Amino acid sequence: MKIAALQMVSGTSVASNLQRAQSLLEQAASQGARLAVLPEYFCLMGQTDPDKVRVREKPGSGPIQDFLASTARRLGLWIAGGTLPLQGPDPNRVLNTTLVFNPAGELAARYDKMHLFAFQSGAERYAEADSITPGSQPVAFDCEGWRVGLAICYDLRFPELFRALSRRPDGAIHPCDVFLLPAAFTHTTGEKHWEVLLRARAIENLAYVLGSAQGGTHENGRRTWGHSLIVDSWGEVLAMQAEGEAVVTATLERERIARHRQSLPALAHRVV
């Protein structure tokens, strides 16, 4: 199955961002992708954190969700909608949510980001908990016979989440074949940690990992690292784009995963 990581440099207008996302999704479909993944905050990189609260939508209703559903249906494409702000229990905060739509335009999976980014170095400061309520449940879904695990940006630093995604509710091992990670990594942290962490999660789980990122300097002055990439189950980078808008594609191969898991049966050696 061909998959696509879509890289954006989103701005402060939801309408403009959706227009750019539509163009990238159309490119992905025209290149033969069956699953396309938008980056975190694809619909809005606001001037301030409260901007997310201003454009939040009720689950199941709103222009951003309508755009994702209708585009998936029109293109006959699986779309993982990066993240969008959904209404949650706190009126002053949002849920930072990935919604996955199938080619019929139906909601196939929803994941609310569990780990909220916090970072301070000099004048550079981020505190997602100021405007975001964390989710509580890992989410994986089936996509045309592939088991797909969902994570978002800062989740990448928590390998236990990826392990949890490869277990059934009864505790039985059910490995994911691919993990999707929409992100908006800062330039500061991304330069040092992005690729090595993505490759580590792929190697640990003997699975593909797709990172779809924001990549460039945004209207609000923030600079994101970009480097959207697709890594195979041996930790090899199959495709990457450093900065700017891009469609990054690669083809998932079942034989590659099977070969790696047979030659190095680490998943079967787990004791915890």
Rank of each mutant, 00 (worst) to 15 (best):
N92Y: 07
Q65T: 09
D90T: 12
I257A: 14
N220C: 10
E40F: 07
T249D: 05
Y111R: 08
E243D: 02
A151C: 05
Q31D: 12
L75P: 03
W234C: 10
H218A: 04
P89A: 09
T98F: 00
I257P: 06
Q47D: 13
R256F: 10
S16H: 08
A213S: 08
R259E: 07
R163W: 02
L156C: 03
V272L: 13
T249V: 14
P39H: 01
Q47K: 09
Y208Q: 09
A80K: 02
G122A: 13
V231I: 15
V272Y: 11
S228Y: 07
G60T: 03
H218L: 14
A4G: 02
R54C: 04
L229K: 10
N220F: 11
G211F: 03
N92K: 14
R254S: 14
V55H: 03
I79L: 09
G60S: 14
L264P: 00
I257T: 08
P103M: 09
G190M: 02
T48Q: 15
L75V: 03
I132T: 06
Q27D: 13
S166G: 15
I257S: 05
L86D: 07
G226P: 03
R259N: 10
Q137C: 05
V272M: 14
F119Y: 14
M1G: 09
F67M: 10
I132W: 01
W78I: 02
